[in-house]
Structure formats: C-alpha cells, structure tokens
Computed example of a mutant assay.
Amino acid sequence: MVELKNIRVVYNKNQVNEKKALDKFELSIKKGEFVTIIGPNGAGKTTLLKVLTGEVALDQGSFTLNNKSIKRIKPYKLFRNVGIVYQEPDRGVFPDLTLEENLILGSKKGNRFFSFGKYEGLELLKSLNMGLENRLKTKVKEFSGGQKQALAMVLASITKPDLLLLDEHTAALDPKNVEKVMELTMKINKELGLTIIMVTHNMKIVEKYSSRIVEIKDGKVTKDFVYEKTHNTEELKKVTAN
C-alpha cells in the first residue's frame, strides 16, 4: 500500500549546514495498518510526513502509494488521497465557519456528493459524547481544543483517504481530550479501515494504543516491531530508554 525504498532527503545541499534528513530510509505499510512513528527531535519524523504529503521532493529513492509512483500522481489527487491532522487544532478546521459548514467543505475535498442525512462523520462525532451533533450552527472558533481536534480528525477522514497522517495530534490536548481523540482515532482505523501513520512523543499513547511501532533515528529506521502489550513491553522499554 505504502512503499518507501532507499529514500534520501537532503536539506541545504552543498552548503556548510547540509543535513541528511532521511538517508537510505525504508518502510512498507499494508492497507489498514496503524503504524506509530517515534524517535527523538531531528530524527526525520517531520520530513517523513512531508514526503508522504508530497511537500518535500526526494533526492533519491522511490515512494509508491497503492502501487503507483508518487511522481505519477497529480498534486490535487495526492491531496485527495492523503489526509493529515496537525498538532494545532486550528490548522485542521475552519474556525470562522459553523460546524455544519466545516462538514460540507470537508466532504467536498474528494469531489463527492454531500449527503448530510447519511454522513458518516456526524455519526463519528455523536459517538464521542461531546454534544457536537447539537451544535451544527455554532462557529467552530467557540469550541474547545479537544472538540476542534475531534472535528479535524473527521474532516481529514470524511473522504476516506488512502492514508491518514497524524502529526502529534494529541500534544496540545488535556488528558481527558487525549482519550476522546484517541478513541476516535481507533474507531476511524477499525471501522473505516483507514491506513494510519501516527507520529507522537507521548509514550503513554504508544503503550496503550499502538500495534506496530517504528523508531527513527538519524533519518533511518532503527526499530520496527509489532507491539503485543502482554508479551513485549520489555522491547518497548528498550526503545524508549535510548
């Protein structure tokens, strides 16, 4: 589904401050997987996300999505097929528009006809018990950070993209809203079947929700393992201790 082979991305090429953000990077992800990316600051996690959204060009290697080279996917189609939720809740919503208007705009991302009565995103919001389904005419700027981020998650997944990227999407939330947003994350993965790549520094989230963990250091994959909570917690401790 996602294939990254021998990826190299170099910033400030041929300058004194040249830096290899990704170097001989390899990663393969199957459809429907939920992969957690961890690693120290500067490891290459942000660059990886920018590669996956087409924001950063490759200096070397290949990136295929559904067996199609990224070079052959037009930018607007990549935008339709790859959703992303950022750390800052306001980046994923339209604060000056109502909740209903946000849902309508989100549904148009993939040029799909908007059918409000059958809209799956509204059902996802209802399942959170935040009461958002009763505030359709409220401007989103009046919502809390957790409510905005829940909406951002829905807007990013409404068109069922091939790949959903989560860039520290719970970092700005309080513990209660972290739980709510992670519940929604798991629901989107399991019930909608979306392939998800989550970048996080929150090891409590990693331990509680992750199934496959990939560690990146110095632009390379240094660990890649399936995390079975009842069997290999020691493996996770080794990763987090480094």
Rank of each mutant, 00 (worst) to 15 (best):
I70K: 11
K71G: 03
Y76C: 09
N81L: 11
G83K: 07
G83M: 11
V85E: 00
P89A: 04
R91H: 13
F94L: 11
F94C: 08
P95W: 05
D96K: 12
T98H: 02
E100Q: 13
N102L: 00
K109S: 08
N111C: 06
F116T: 12
G117S: 13
G117A: 15
K118W: 06
E120M: 13
G121L: 03
L122Q: 09
E123W: 13
K126D: 12
S127A: 00
L128S: 08
G131R: 07
L132M: 11
E133A: 05
R135L: 09
R135C: 06
K137T: 13
T138L: 15
E142T: 15
S144M: 03
G145F: 06
Q147T: 10
Q147P: 00
Q149A: 01
A150N: 10
V154N: 00
V154T: 10
L155W: 01
A156C: 04
A156Y: 05
I158M: 14
I158N: 12
I158L: 04
T159R: 11
P161V: 12
P161C: 15
L166K: 03
D167G: 01
D167K: 06
D167S: 11
D167R: 05
E168N: 07
H169Q: 08
A172C: 02
D174T: 02
P175T: 08
E179P: 01
T185D: 04
M186L: 14
K187I: 09
I188N: 01
I188P: 09
I188G: 00
